[in-house]
């Protein structure tokens, strides 16, 4: 069976700076993949290229058997590729419930037979909020939320589009250990339901617990790809993180 996500020879430059070079990556259906790397190694740039926010100069991305090249970000979202942002980017003028209404209207609603009536929209947004524990804040604005609630909203919005693949870009940065466990439980629950997950994270405890496979980016190159316990013993990875 072909992989759900296939990345071949992907490169991205910003002017003279090479952010990513020759990235090859396969992610299988149902997999839990951890993506790590030092700051500035190109993790978020890779996410942006996969999701269509940035355009890669070379290489191509296949998702669910379809070529993604040239497709806009909203098209990719509708095909089942969802992402959360490293720094939460809610819609500040819309209530928490209405933040979730957007992907329900524009991702789910754009699929054949996906159009939801007013009652169904309310119900679905309510379910998602209950799932992340924000049900009592449905009518509040994102500005009223705490940091962890904001990250939960970010995940809920990504999940609302019923994705096949969810890329969680540092969904746990700055959270306390129990809050990290909350988010991990949420992601594990999603994965159980069949969603493939790419977790980008600095918190090694979370990455090691969650990931079935670990990929390491350093300075725009993929330097390791394999079982987590093997990867962290890999000499190149140790060198990248700790120096010689």
């Amino acid at each position: 069976m072909a992989a759900l996500l296939e990345v071949r020879d992907l490169s991205k430059r910003f002017g003279g700076f090479v952010a990513l070079e020759g990235i090859d990556l396969d992610v299988n259906q149902g997999e839990r993949l951890g993506l790590i790397g030092p700051n500035g190694s190109g993790k978020s740039t890779l996410v942006n290229c996969l999701c269509g926010t940035l355009r890669n100069e070379t290489g191509n991305v296949h998702f669910d058997g379809l070529a993604m090249d040239g497709l806009s970000a909203h098209r990719r979202a509708r095909l089942g590729l969802a992402r959360s942002f490293q720094l939460p980017r809610p819609f500040p003028s819309l209530s928490i419930a209405d933040n979730l209404r957007i992907p329900l209207l524009y991702v789910v609603g754009a699929r054949p037979g996906g159009g939801l009536g007013e009652a169904a929209l309310e119900a679905r947004a309510g379910e998602l909020l209950a799932m992340v524990g924000l049900a009592d804040k449905a009518r509040r604005l994102p500005g009223d939320l705490t940091q962890i609630e904001m990250r939960k909203l970010e995940l809920a919005r990504a999940m609302a589009g019923e994705p096949k693949l969810l890329i969680a870009d540092e969904a746990m940065a700055g959270l306390s250990p129990t809050e990290v466990d909350d988010i991990l439980a949420l992601l594990a629950q999603l994965n159980e339901a069949g969603v493939t997950i790419i977790l980008i994270e600095h918190i090694m405890r979370a990455v090691m617990n969650f990931s079935e496979r670990l990929v390491v980016l350093v300075a725009g190159h993929k330097i390791a790809d394999g079982k987590p316990e093997d990867v962290i013993r890999n000499a190149a990875v140790v060198e990248a993180y700790l120096g010689q």
Binding site: G52, A82, P90, L94, A110, G161
Partner: peptide, 22 residues
């Protein structure tokens, strides 16, 4: 639906695209 889409453009265009808004 259009009005909600407009509001997301006002708020954050990148996040709007990621939420399927053309």
């Amino acid at each position: 639906r259009l009005g909600y889409g407009f509001a997301t453009i006002r708020d954050d265009e990148v996040a709007a695209e990621a939420s399927g808004v053309p």
